[in-house]
């Protein structure tokens, strides 16, 4: 089975570490970034990316919305899950299509479920195309 690389972006270190743990335990290969520009750099230099789990307000100028847009541009089948404490209301305007938003705090199962559901959808889509 091929590895499914994921990128986790959250400026809150403890939450980021926890996400990495949960997703690694779920069988994914996880890379993490603490801010938007590091995330954009990573996307830029990456050859293969299946999923993105990103916080929205990343402290700096670049938001999670922007990271997801750039990620989708490069990887059209990218599964995108936004996690946020307070920006969920902007999701309909700012979020990329076929994405999900999880309100903080959430349980481990929720994030794993969200990522796998989206990945299955994306791979079904690309199979039928």
């Amino acid at each position: 089975m091929e590895t499914q690389p994921l990128l986790v972006v959250d400026d809150e270190t403890l939450i980021r570490l926890d996400l990495v743990d949960v997703l690694e335990a779920g069988g994914f290969t996880v890379q993490d970034c603490a801010d938007g520009s590091a995330a954009l750099n990573y996307v830029d230099g990456s050859g293969h990316l299946c999923g993105l789990v990103t916080d929205i307000n990343l402290g700096g100028k670049i938001s999670g919305w922007e990271v997801a847009r750039q990620g989708r541009k490069k990887f059209p089948n990218l599964a995108v899950v936004y996690i946020t404490g307070d920006s969920a209301s902007q999701w309909p305007f700012e979020g990329v299509p076929n994405s999900m938003v999880l309100q903080k705090p959430f349980a481990d199962a929720q994030i794993l479920n969200a990522v796998t559901t989206l990945m299955n959808q994306q791979s079904n889509q690309s199979n039928t195309e």
């Binding site: 809150e12 939450i15 926890d18 404490g85 903080k104 705090p105």
Partner: peptide, 8 residues
Amino acid sequence: NILSVVQA
């Protein structure tokens, strides 16, 4: 945020 940190 702090609740999320505590949860983490």
